[in-house]
Design a protein around this nucleic acid. Sequence first.
DNA 1: CCCTTTTCACCTAGGTGGTAAGAT
DNA 2: ATCTTACCACCTAGGTGAAAAGGG
Lengths: 181, 181
Amino acid sequence: RRMFPTFQVKIFGMDPMADYMLLMDFVPVDDKRYRQSPGLRLRVPSPPGRYAFHSSSWLVAGKADPATPGRVHYHPDSPAKGAQWMKQIVSFDKLKLTNNLLDDNGHIILNSMHRYQPRFHVVYVDPRKDSEKYAEENFKTFVFEETRFTAVTAYQNHRITQLKIASNPFAKGFRDCDPED
Amino acid sequence: RRMFPTFQVKIFGMDPMADYMLLMDFVPVDDKRYRQSPGLRLRVPSPPGRYAFHSSSWLVAGKADPATPGRVHYHPDSPAKGAQWMKQIVSFDKLKLTNNLLDDNGHIILNSMHRYQPRFHVVYVDPRKDSEKYAEENFKTFVFEETRFTAVTAYQNHRITQLKIASNPFAKGFRDCDPED
DNA sequence: CCCTTTTCACCTAGGTGGTAAGAT
DNA sequence: ATCTTACCACCTAGGTGAAAAGGG
């Protein structure tokens, strides 16, 4: 599924006439696997056997599962001129996440119940013939720690669910109050 | 609205490594305005005052209206390498037509009840600094006379309506028979 | 018990011709 | 009488969380 909220950046300082590729990838924050904290779960009235999913914190459940294929997502407008990228906010809203190791849609593969750090990369398309030699200097990575998250197959916290219902237009069918709240 | 059926071309003979822009425009076939032929109209049972729109031929109704702004539609993948364009059929399915002279969506403006000839243009993106000098030779136009049509605001021929209902996926709601027919 | 998968109603977004009302 | 406009139900295409079913 799509990552939501969407990763968005405002870019400054590019050469307006040069070509750039913009891409994202995801690296593990640690080598741990997480699980719900049953003791802190906020139970809601529900039929027996129904899953409550209202825990409010994470517990370490052991060592991380084997790493997933380290895929990369190119912004679909790549390559484009610096002027184009800087003109407005760049939005990675087409980026999709999956836990399916056999995925062949080119989606980013993550382990559920693991923590990830999104990374944003800018690659300058070097017009020189021997551009491979300059790969290192033509490449810049940006990390925003506030974008870290735990991958899940089902929401573990009711406030996250409510936040997404309130802010994602496609979830409008589940709203029962003003999205401004 | 979109032009349907869509103008599609298969391209051969480009330089696979060179950049090209692909575009379309529309030129009047003649300087005439057309109208329905009441004598040949195939009336269907309908309440009095309801419009029948089943004429089977066109009559000249006089001289053409003033020409519309001669807009151009660039294929949204432009510019792209020759290899990319030749890889598969190029489809102009995003091209939209309007009769609104004040249109500011960049759509192609046509006069209703006038005949038009779609044209397809290929522009080689010349990497030389003085490329303007070679504009003439870097430009090639293709005309397929079988794609001529009369612009309308409402269909004038029931067989056209049926053909579109049968072949356009978005008109599936009006189908009452097999689209294969 | 805890997590994952599948299916579903309900949305967004936008492309159809039908139809009634409007314009000339 | 002829053509145009505005609106509509009905599609395509695909993104939501809920809920039920499945798995270890």
